Amino acid sequence: MQQLSAQKIRSSFVNASRSEVAKLNLPKDFDSLNWENMELLGWRDPKMPLRGYLVFPSDDGKVTAVLLRAPEAGARKNRSVLCELCRAVHAKNDVFLWVARRAGQSGRDGNTVGTLICADFDCNSNVRVEPPKNEINPDPAAVVLDRIDGLKDRTRQFLERVQGR
C-alpha cells in the first residue's frame, strides 16, 4: 500500500459527513505505519471507541474510506467468529459486527451494511501468518499471497456494498 496523507484519507470518505470527517482522530502511530505491509488501513477512534474507519486503495489508485460503528458492549455474542475480510477465526471478543451507513441518499435514509471485521483491524498481520509446511500447504509463502489477494477482494466487495454497487 502506498503511504497516504491525512488529507487524502479525509477526502476519500464515501459515507461520512464533513463534520464527522473533521472530528476523526488518526491512529496514534500514523506517522510510523509500515505501509508496505498493509492492504488496508483500519483503526478504532481512540476518543470514540465505538467508531472505526476503514481505508482501502484500489489497484487504479483510487482511495475509498468508510466510517464504521461497532456494537454496544451488550450486543456482542459469546462465541468464536470468523472475520469476513481476513478469514481468521478469533475468540468472541476479537471480531465485531462493524456497521457502515450506505453512501449517498440511501445512507441518509438510514440504510446500513454490516460485516464481521477484526475488532482492532488486525487483518493485515493475520493474513501474513504463514501456515506450517505440510502436504496441504507445500508452499506457505504462496498461501500468504493467496490470503492477501483474498483480503483485497473481500474488502473491495464490502466497500462496493457500502456504495450501493
Rank of each mutant, 00 (worst) to 15 (best):
P131A: 08
N78L: 14
V89L: 09
R101K: 12
D120A: 02
A141L: 04
A142C: 00
G74L: 15
K133M: 02
V66A: 13
R76A: 12
P131D: 04
A103T: 05
D120G: 00
R102F: 00
G114E: 00
V99R: 12
P132K: 04
R108S: 13
V143R: 01
A91C: 05
V129S: 04
V143L: 01
V113M: 03
V63I: 15
Q105F: 06
W98D: 00
K133I: 01
E84T: 13
V81Q: 08
A100P: 02
A73W: 07
W98S: 00
P57W: 07
N137G: 03
V113F: 02
A141Y: 01
N124M: 07
G104Q: 02
C83K: 04
D109V: 05
R108N: 12
D59I: 13
P131V: 08
L85E: 04
N124R: 06
E72D: 11
V129H: 07
D109T: 05
K77L: 15
N124C: 08
V81S: 14
N134D: 10
N111P: 02
S106G: 08
N126M: 08
A119S: 11
A88S: 12
T112R: 09
S80I: 08
L116R: 11
P140K: 07
V63E: 04
T112Y: 03
D122Q: 05
V66Q: 07
N78T: 10
I117T: 00
N126H: 05
E135I: 05
L97C: 12
R76K: 14
P138W: 00
A70K: 12
E135W: 06
A73M: 10
C123Q: 03
P57Q: 14
I117V: 10
C83E: 03
E135Y: 07
F121C: 02
A100N: 03
P131N: 04
D120P: 00
V66C: 14
E130W: 01
A142T: 01
S106P: 02
L67P: 03
P132A: 06
K92D: 06
E84S: 12
A142F: 01
N93E: 06
N137R: 07
R69L: 13
S106T: 09
S80Q: 09
K92R: 11
K133H: 00
K62S: 15
S106R: 15
A91V: 07
G110P: 06
S80K: 09
V66S: 08
G74A: 14
D120F: 02
P131F: 06
P71M: 15
